[in-house]
Design a binder for these strands. Structure first.
Lengths: 212, 212
DNA sequence: CGCGGAATGGGTCGCTAGGCCCACGGCAGC
DNA sequence: GCTGCCGTGGGCCTAGCGACCCATTCCGCG
């Protein structure tokens, strides 16, 4: 689950993008700001893995965001893309770049790529086919596809409300330690940090609906 | 959330009952067994708060269940109810009794009553109006109806995946201690024991769909 | 045959979650 | 005006969670 912040004064675009991204199973927009300064104020209370910002905004543009944020990769989006702007964004420390006319798959790929530590589309529009290819696949089931049978089994119980380690261990006839090992592996694959988020993910991915 | 085991060799009845009960927000059937011995074998791996068992079954009837289970209240259900059978069940240690022809609301009330430590319909069919009244209310939203605004707000965030105390505290502009106090209150009202189960409940109750 | 992944375990460590006490101001209802 | 509930906090304590090491067995794939 990649949590994304959006800073854009074009509210319609931001909301449309938010809706579209929320429909992807591995991306969730956790906040929308109308300016760079607004984003810097609010992001502390709602952490994210990726920030998307417009360059030109009234009241603190994208450059303010690029300066104010350190730990989180920032993707710059502009109305009219040019190599000039790409390079400017790259110099300012952006991790990615795309035009507002880019298709959703490209935007999603950009988000996934920078979330994974890559740099996206900074040099030119070309030359990113490999990244596009690599990060457009996980549109559905980000890490879920790579979940093992045992991990899915644990998630199924988690989604049903069996959250205690000892109960899970009894249900699966394994030791509590093994349960915790599986959970740790699940957390990594789903990019979550505790079993509550894992349970929510499991429900969202439909893992709770199996059999019974 | 009251977890229920059903032991009944009439598969159709058991499955129908299971479906009906699962539609209630506060009751979930966690397992169905075709005989008393089967139930005793499997209940260890799937804990429940209430057991419902038929009296007459091939391969270990309800009496075996009543003898084999200690911590969990057992409700006896029969095809043809009679005061004779009620009293026999009561003597054998049953916590409740109902006929297979009883309406769903009565069955649900019986489950809720014995889950709360009451004894239901053991003496006769009459004289339980008070219990029926008391435990038929929470058909929808068990404790959810009594959730305060602040508690619903916390559940909303929980269902979105914000599970860490410090993150919740920042989002709500209150101290971590108050978050934990609210959570403790939520756990009681929803009859859950940790925030994972609370998040699942919140999703099921539709508390996650509000606004945004 | 060797490599890697899956599943099963072990240990340790720090922090958090949850249980259980309590307090106080505000506000509504009676 | 008093009482009860809500929201806000405090302290304390234990068990459990999650992060980080690690080992072993089995099985499939190349």
């Amino acid at each position: 689950m990649i949590r994304v912040w959006i800073a854009d004064d074009h509210t319609l675009f931001a909301q449309g993008l938010s809706r579209a991204l929320d429909n992807l199973p591995d991306i969730r927009v956790v906040g929308i700001a109308a300016s760079g300064s607004e984003l810097l104020e609010q992001i502390g209370s709602q952490p994210a893995e990726v920030v998307i910002t417009d360059l030109e905004m009234p009241g603190g543009g994208g450059s303010a965001v690029l300066e104010g944020i350190e730990d989180t990769p920032v993707i710059v989006v502009t109305m009219h893309a040019s190599d000039e702007q790409r390079k400017a964004a790259a110099r300012a420390g952006a991790a990615g770049f795309f035009s507002k006319s880019a298709p959703l798959t490209t935007i999603a790929a950009a988000i996934r790529a920078v979330a994974a530590g890559e740099r996206f589309d900074l040099e030119s529009e070309e030359g990113n086919e490999e990244l596009l290819e690599r990060y457009s696949k996980p549109q559905l089931d980000p890490g879920a596809a790579s979940l093992t049978e045992r991990e899915k089994e644990i998630l199924k119980y988690l989604a049903k409300g069996v959250s205690a380690t000892d109960e899970l261990a009894e249900l699966l006839f394994i030791s509590q330690k093994t349960v915790k090992n599986h959970l740790a592996s699940i957390f990594q694959k789903l990019a979550v940090s505790d079993r509550t988020q894992a349970a929510i993910e499991a429900i969202r991915l439909g893992l709770a609906d199996d059999d019974e």
